[in-house]
Design a protein around this nucleic acid. Sequence first.
DNA 1: AGTAAATTACCGACCAGTCAGTTAGTGACT
DNA 2: AGTCACTAACTGACTGGTCGGTAATTTACT
Lengths: 215, 215
Amino acid sequence: MQTTATRTESRRERRPEDRPQELVAAALDLFVEKGFAATRLDDVAARAGVSKGTLYLYFDSKEALFKAVIESAVIPAVAQGEQVVRDFQGSSADLLRQLVHGWWRLFGGTKLGGIPKLMVSEARNFPGVAQFYHEQVIQRGVRLFAGTVQRGIDSGEFRPVDVECAVGALLGPLMMKALWRHSFVACGCGISEIEPEHFLETTVDLFLNGLRASR
Amino acid sequence: MQTTATRTESRRERRPEDRPQELVAAALDLFVEKGFAATRLDDVAARAGVSKGTLYLYFDSKEALFKAVIESAVIPAVAQGEQVVRDFQGSSADLLRQLVHGWWRLFGGTKLGGIPKLMVSEARNFPGVAQFYHEQVIQRGVRLFAGTVQRGIDSGEFRPVDVECAVGALLGPLMMKALWRHSFVACGCGISEIEPEHFLETTVDLFLNGLRASR
DNA sequence: AGTAAATTACCGACCAGTCAGTTAGTGACT
DNA sequence: AGTCACTAACTGACTGGTCGGTAATTTACT
């Protein structure tokens, strides 16, 4: 269906296949940057190179666009995490390290890292989307880490702890790192950010040391 | 200046001394609940028992009200934390425990716990307020914890670690706990919350165990 | 009577959502 | 190869409602 190559220069191109994803990409940028309420649909459309009317050909409402953004951004990342766990051979400690760094590489450290901020900000105003995000992202994500911690406890690699709490203690810093970047750091109010990889490494070390079966 | 006791029943009371704080209290509730943008000044005024015009007698703009909310909510809490550190006699580990639980008791676990969510959500839209919050709350708060960790390292109670990272690793879970309550939990989408005191206790234990000078 | 506090009614900017009209592409029939 | 009819994609001016902010007026208190 591409009109590619031959003609790139007309405004008013017709590319119904590509529009939705282009609009979603534009919306992700702006939602992350300005928040849901402060984002104008005119701006989203302009960034995607179409008019606002076109946006409404593909999405019923601003909220529908919001949900599409969350879905498209986040499902692939979770799925990839699950893949890593399935394939991994090695100690639970190494798997946790891998998960943490992988999470940063393909989620926290990218523009997708703005999603948690968006969800925290908007959860109460959009319970439907929050529900969806909770089931499809948070629960699955937590399960990944919880399973790994449990595996370490079972094998005697870690001392027995409340798994749910431990996962919270590890994911808390990660999430805050992502939130931080997209709020205070991004607003440029003289904040110098700790180098991410170093922070993650130190956090995981501390965590694993805390979990280590003590003599 | 109270008009108390004698006359409680006329609408249209004149109580210029009390209005600002009542308005700030109402605004805190609504900002935390619905976010800054979604909160109507009519609603703030109504909750404070006055009309919108009255609000403008005491605050220049919605943003000024926002800043007043942040200031009034948060400065006393930080000051109290600093007091605790000054007065404390005992091990660094015990001081950290005390700080964490104190933080929850008089900040995270109260309606003030909604402030971090508010700041994360709005920092980019209000750099001035973000700047203020960063200096007056975050930096001072971090300094509290960082000083304590450093004290533990110096005394040989903790092993040497990157103090800034360690503080992030401890505060991350606390902050997420507060954010969580005011986003996903509050939206009531079938989420059961981990019991806070238990979570905090486990997190601190894990953290202190991770810091313990090894062998 | 005088003034400070509070209210009400109003304005204007803003923006999600709509719709009548425009244009790019397709293919049918010369 | 040309052109014409048709449709689906796209546009942008418009609307109706909302809400931050203001000003004229009323009320409480000294």
